[in-house]
Write a protein that binds this DNA or RNA. Structure first.
Lengths: 211, 211
DNA sequence: CAACAGACTGCACGCATGTACAGCCCGTGT
DNA sequence: ACACGGGCTGTACATGCGTGCAGTCTGTTG
């Protein structure tokens, strides 16, 4: 077993890695034949190891989720390491793109990935709130959920609008300093004034509720 | 020609409407056979009228974009009509879901739809800024783009995370008053404080740029 | 009345896909 | 020495897809 692959990974892991890559690059419509070619194995070996394609995808899902647990997305607690955690290697880019692909697939799996991201965000925000970074008014559960959806969704739009040819390039292209700064400023300052027109607007919505 | 369909639309329009519905419900993987069944015509008639499936989709794209031009998404100028413009009929729900599906498809078409949405948002924000609703610091082009991506993306996440069985139900389920209020409050107040830790965070990002 | 145009259909072809199956190769244990 | 089990492959099959084609029906035109 260990003599066969002098170079790198076992074929089983190589298939998983190839599937991860192809799913991230082409979406989950990627064919088993494409994956097999990427992993340099036959199609039959994939089914031999993983049975069905759905099962292979689920294995990839679990693998990505497990890797995500170790990777810290936002290093709010240690500001100086923010750059490292985002662009350290191409692997994290594939993980991110795979997650975005899962959201684009739009189903129960999308919900699963978003819930995972949400709980991750929640703990980060708890820590940030304790550090005095977050306003108390923003800590309501619905607000946190909304803000997480907006942030993740903004990233999703960025991806869907301009998907990279190679999923390993995405984070370098998406997480520019300019983008981060604008995002932070926007979320610190807000963009609505508290003019009477705004209050009128809110009143109209509340009135609309009572119909 | 006009005697044949006593009931409703011409078959050509019925096909387009069925395609719109099926694409919105099932995504663009929806088969011509499904669309044909929905329109109560044969598959061959679809190709007879529209040639290829890609062409049918492009016709649907153009149709949706044209209808969007007439529909006002956000009635900031007239606060009292906000409820009407969002939930008036099931048609607008299909249009919205179709647009979200186009974004989920992740390609040039996604870019096209988002650009359309962006220009629409821009004019609304110009008007809102003139009315004193928007802070000047938020009117920078990159900020507007970012805010549009976040808002649209939040909606996209809401859809992808919990897609409705019938696309006509989406706006009723997604645009609740509670959600709108939270969104507005979040965008008015922001959620980051301006503590020194925050400034330190921003400084770290700027430093990261100069590597 | 005849001819024509166009809406409309049934059928079949080629293609790509996921999956099942029979069998090969080879390191390992008895 | 020999059987065995698992990694690994080639082939074949059923299915669903988009598309092309021959042909029918019907209202309109000369």
């Amino acid at each position: 077993m260990r003599t066969a692959e002098a170079e790198d990974l076992t074929a089983r892991a190589r298939i998983r890695e190839a599937a991860l890559f192809c799913f991230a690059r082409d979406g989950f419509g990627a064919s088993l034949r494409t994956i097999a070619q990427e992993a340099k194995v036959s199609v039959a070996l994939i089914t031999h190891h993983y049975g069905t394609k759905d099962n292979l995808r689920q294995v990839c899902d679990d693998h990505v989720l497990a890797r995500y647990r170790d990777m810290k997305l936002l290093a709010v607690a240690q500001p100086s390491s923010v750059g490292d955690s985002l662009t350290d290697n191409a692997d994290s880019s594939i993980l991110t793109v795979y997650m975005l692909r899962s959201l684009l697939a739009a189903g129960p799996t999308a919900q699963r990935f978003f819930d995972h991201f949400l709980t991750q965000i929640e703990t980060v925000m708890q820590a940030s709130f304790a550090a005095g970074l977050i306003k108390e008014s923003a800590m309501a559960p619905e607000k946190i959920r909304l803000m997480a959806a907006d942030t993740m969704g903004g990233l999703l739009i960025t991806f869907a609008t301009n998907p990279p040819d190679d999923p390993r390039d995405f984070v370098d292209q998406a997480f520019t300093a300019e983008r981060l700064l604008n995002q932070l400023e926007l979320y610190r300052d807000g963009f609505f004034t508290d003019s009477p027109v705004f209050d009128q607007y809110i009143a109209a919505i509340k009135e609309w509720t009572h119909d």
